[in-house]
Design a protein around this nucleic acid. Structure first.
Lengths: 216, 216, 216, 216
DNA sequence: GATGAATGAGTGTTCATTCAT
DNA sequence: CATGAATGAACACTCATTCAT
């Protein structure tokens, strides 16, 4: 628990409004770039209150992060069970779809993650990234182990490496779509205009089949 | 060309010192976090000069970026030719090694790239990222096309997707190593202690052979 | 009486806790530097109560001062009678010893006095200092008059001046010892390492015998 | 040297105005109570300038202190030589007179000294007090040693103790007069209305002759 | 062309005080 | 009667930018 009891005693609706506004602010400007002045102006509350609630900027940031994690976990929990029993390609595609939906529904969550990822000054950066990465890796590992049990995986596959590859590629896929407004869409199939789902299918197939010619 | 002629007329050594110091500053704090006050103090030049040379903070930033791109391109040009004619796996591994060497030799270049990548406020972010990404994609495409000519690639491979996958995985590999001081090294083979080269070999092999069982 | 009846109706123990905590706070930071926010956090009581009890910060300060005076008077009352009938030098030394003991036992009392002494913004400063000084002067005057009756004093001695000298020197002696952690102990016999008692003896003897050569 | 070169380059008149205003501010409110906002408003300069000149509040404080010391030393240097060769009582009286004149002419200097003396939070307090005390003690010691050579002192007099007594009494004399507006004049000859010079004469005579009856 | 003094809006943070509950 | 959420002015300090010299 990091926010003061003062904050905990607030009506839920007000709590949500504050954390939501702060999430906006941090997502837009990163930790250093977020302005508490701008935040309280937007929220229509006094500056003193922020400090009463969270002690300092870092405290607010931590609270926002925890809030964001809750949002994500809640969302993913709903997605998780649905694909049980299906083959790996399908599950990966559904995971990507869930990720894309999350980005579209709550763009600031993903934005916050990206902002913090490389901002040296952000407090708790280590913990925060570790938490996200651990979750992501465990998720991939679960999928792969299920697939292994179903005999879907290439014999001799290094699971650690596979998790790494999946993590990297899927995250980059999400990044590319969250930044497609930028010049050239950052290059993912830049020329084409297929739907994201089609792109995802090709990428997943490429990952499963590999790049190299088969010696068999 | 964005820097004023005043700057162009400076002795090359002084130009280099200024751009180098500014690169440090931007790499350390991102665009928003960089302080011109701190910069001029470090450089021992007058504050007015910065504005005479570059107009404003954004102008300095653009000059630094151009300077950084030059450094990288020069470095990679040296690396490029060496692996001509070898097989794809070797060339990918050598590219990774070159990337790691670059990170170790010029850590601020990679740092700047990462900082800017997700900092909304940074001017020219779009152009800058597009330039870097285009270079990176072209590099991968060259490798893949050579490999295709040599019959190393799986028939039916979607080149665009393959480029995307390579770009994502190789960049993530570099990021993981540049941030390995962070909690858990951000999870790359977190348990093991092999050398980076060994990790790279396993990852590349996984990419080439694919994750899935071969139907053949 | 300045504290509200609400405060008077509190259980004695709670009253004492509050005044004691406030004494700490004022002694540590002076009037201006004391923080009511910090105080209530330390005490675990609500902020509103302080204002209910004392009206405002100045009211609390006055109450603390009265409380402090009570503590001192009570302490000195115990010390007073003991030296009756002894010679002046002994009584002065015992007074100094009592002062030193007080400083060691209740350092915050002396600290508060010193802090307030020269802090212009402190309310009631005049009254407070006058009270303390009047007490101190009366104490010295009592000793001197007893000594006069016993024929211990130099004929022609100006009692007012003697009181002034004693007051100044004895207080400075206490200050020096309460600040001996500061650079050079503020210079009291800085080189030597005798015990405080020895230093006191020399000082008292110097006062009694005077600095000048005796014409007699 | 503690103030930045920026400050050193200012016209002397402006430097003087700034240090003088700051001296006022610190003397009135102590270190903690002084407001840089109020200061710059009073001076009619911008807030940024203060920080450009002195780095931070503590830097300004140090500069003010150094400035104050210079003022005092300059003043005392003028006073010093004049009393050479006279007897101890005369020299002490002239010293007191000089002190009183200083307090009247530059009341803020003495005020600053008193404020800082017991304000825990003030930076450099140790150094500052040590400097002042060392000067004061050395001054007294000089007088006493001259008097000793002239055979004016009581044989067996402990010089250290005598210095301590003189320092304490003379300083208190000055304090009493600088605070005589306070309730009861803090008790120095409170009833009477003689001139300060008369009071000083009695006090000095008391010190020289001692309080006790002479056994001779 | 180079300098660096000046600026004022901006930052996060603390404070004594109020008042509805 | 006690509470503690709310407040906004004040705090020290940093910033990119300007412009007279």
């Amino acid at each position: 628990m990091t926010a003061s009891s003062t904050f905990q005693n607030l009506p839920a609706e007000k709590r949500r409004r504050i954390l939501d506004g702060a999430l906006d602010e941090f997502a837009a400007g990163g930790y250093g770039g977020a302005s508490l002045n701008a935040l309280v102006a937007k929220l229509g509350i006094s500056k003193g209150s922020i400090f009463q609630y969270f002690g300092d900027k870092a405290g607010l940031f931590r609270a926002v992060f925890n809030h964001a994690v809750e949002l994500v976990v809640e969302l993913l929990r709903q997605v998780r069970g649905a694909s049980q029993g299906q083959d790996l390609a399908s599950r990966l595609l559904q995971s990507l779809a869930a990720g894309l939906a999350l980005i579209q529904g709550q763009p600031r969550l993903f934005q916050l993650y990206l902002r913090i990822m490389f901002e040296d000054g952000a407090p708790f950066r280590g913990e925060m990234l570790a938490a996200v990465r651990a979750f992501s890796r465990q998720y991939m590992l679960d999928l792969l182990e299920d697939a292994a049990r179903a005999g879907e995986l290439r014999p001799g596959l290094n699971l650690e490496a596979a998790v790494f590859v999946l993590d990297a590629v899927l995250e980059r896929f999400l990044v590319a779509h969250s930044q497609e407004h930028l010049d050239g869409g950052l290059g993912l199939f830049a020329a084409g205009h297929e739907l994201a789902a089609d792109k995802a299918a090709v990428v997943v197939e490429t990952l499963l089949a590999g790049l190299g010619a088969r010696p068999c």
